[in-house]
């Protein structure tokens, strides 16, 4: 059930990337896809009754959740922000050149 909802979120982002014709909407769709992936990783690593993977005094033998997906996602979040910033900067430059975010008009004004 939870996996299915994650996939649904991913599909909504994919729908935005496929159907929308505004550059900012496409960037929003990509961000939503990123969020869905992070969520999927965090859901896969969860363990029933587990605690956060941080050892404190007196809890050395506690049940921890899987730290590996968390470590993978941790770096990916920051990379996602950098990629979003790169896309936004490209979109701003395209807007300065063509005066619109509509990708159909951008194609026509080539050259």
């Amino acid at each position: 059930m939870i996996y299915l909802l994650c996939v649904l979120l991913l599909l909504i982002g994919l729908y935005g990337v496929l159907v929308k014709k505004n550059l900012i909407k496409i960037i929003i769709g990509l961000s939503i896809m990123e969020y869905a992936l992070f969520l999927f990783f965090a859901v896969i690593g969860y363990r029933e009754g587990g605690t956060a993977p941080i050892i404190t005094k007196g809890f050395e033998k506690a049940v921890f959740v899987d730290p590996l997906p968390q470590a993978l996602v941790l770096t990916a979040i920051v990379i996602g922000l950098a990629v979003t910033a790169l896309l936004v900067s490209l979109a701003v430059r395209i807007y300065e050149k063509h005066g619109t975010f509509d990708i159909r008009k951008i194609r026509r004004l080539k050259g």
């Binding site: 900012i24 992070f38 965090a42 996602v73 922000l81």
Partner: peptide
């Protein structure tokens, strides 16, 4: 809820910064 406090800390700051970047771009264009 999924017991990942590291991710929560990073995500809450990244989300704020992403909103700032996107809104800055929007205010400069349309």
């Amino acid at each position: 809820i999924l017991q990942a406090p590291d991710l929560a800390i990073v995500q809450i700051v990244v989300e704020t910064l992403a909103l700032i970047i996107l809104i800055a771009a929007i205010l400069k264009t349309t």
